[in-house]
Amino acid sequence: MSDKPNDGGVPLPVVPAGATSGAPAEQPPASPAGRGMFGNQGTGDVSGYGGLVRPRQPVEEASRPYGGYFDEVRDALEEAYPAFADAIEKVVVDRGELTLHVRPERIAEVCQVLRDDLALRFELCSSVSGVDYLGADERRLHVVYLLTSMTYRRRIRLEAAVSVESPHLPSVTAVYPTADWQEREAYDMFGIVFDGHPNLTRILMPDDWEGHPQRKDYPLGGVPVEYKGAEIPPPDRRRSYQ
């Protein structure tokens, strides 16, 4: 309600700023970059009401000083790795994390330096995962590496992007053996090919499975679920995907 009364002394209702009148019936506009999964052309809201809108924030290169130990990590890597300027596409600091965006062909080299240099000592690769930025990037398939220095109690992220047409980058299993099954999962789910992997085969889906289920243009599919007195259709038959 407004604090300002009208001439009759009765407060006038005011629509809050940013509210969507008529929700949930009103469908907010969608942007190509905010396209939902499995062919959904709406907002990305899979509830079926169309009320969820997540604006995509641009990823911009951070300017120095980054803060904390991030500057020390960059300086040490730049000193230890002469090809730093060619290998690192950009440095991003967001949500308290340091991310180095690495050219795909250089990822194994960067990991080797990060592990072995005495000023860095990122001995552990705790995760290798895939991300599909459908509609937002020509190189839409991204691989994210989470590295930990147990010596210095530090963590950083590496990110490398490849295209669907050429989804290749070197395997880091020779540097981090823990990446073995994680790279296989990224291959299985996203179709990202890790050249030099000792046994790059599917790990979750059957060997003869066609396609990669976590790509955002992969058809959803599903089976109906029956309850007492009701039946829930499979996800691809629900109204959000019609």
Rank of each mutant, 00 (worst) to 15 (best):
Y66G: 02
E109P: 01
E89S: 14
S127N: 14
S63D: 09
G135Q: 03
L134P: 03
A17N: 07
A119E: 03
Y133E: 06
D71R: 07
P198C: 07
F84K: 01
V193T: 15
L98A: 08
V93A: 14
L141C: 04
S240F: 11
V92C: 12
E79P: 00
W181F: 14
V46F: 02
V164S: 11
R153D: 11
R140G: 07
G36K: 00
R56T: 13
L141H: 07
P234L: 04
Y145H: 09
G36Y: 00
V113L: 05
R54K: 13
P235C: 03
Y218V: 09
I88T: 08
K4A: 04
R35Y: 00
G135T: 05
V128R: 02
L120R: 01
D3I: 04
F84I: 03
E105T: 12
L52Y: 00
D45I: 08
V102C: 09
E210A: 13
D94Y: 14
A186H: 09
L158W: 10
G34I: 01
L77I: 04
Y218N: 05
A33K: 12
P58T: 10
T178Y: 00
V164T: 09
Q41E: 10
P13T: 02
G48P: 03
G96F: 10
Y218F: 15
R153C: 02
D7I: 11
S171K: 07
Q182A: 10
Y187A: 08
E89A: 14
E105K: 13
E138C: 01
D217E: 12
E165W: 02
P177Y: 06
P167D: 04
T43Y: 00
V223H: 09
Y176P: 00
G8R: 12
G221N: 08
V143D: 07
M189T: 12
L52K: 06
E231S: 15
D195E: 15
D116E: 15
I88H: 05
S2I: 05
R154E: 01
A161I: 03
W181E: 07
L77A: 06
P219Y: 09
R139A: 14
N199G: 12
P234V: 02
V172K: 03
G39Q: 05
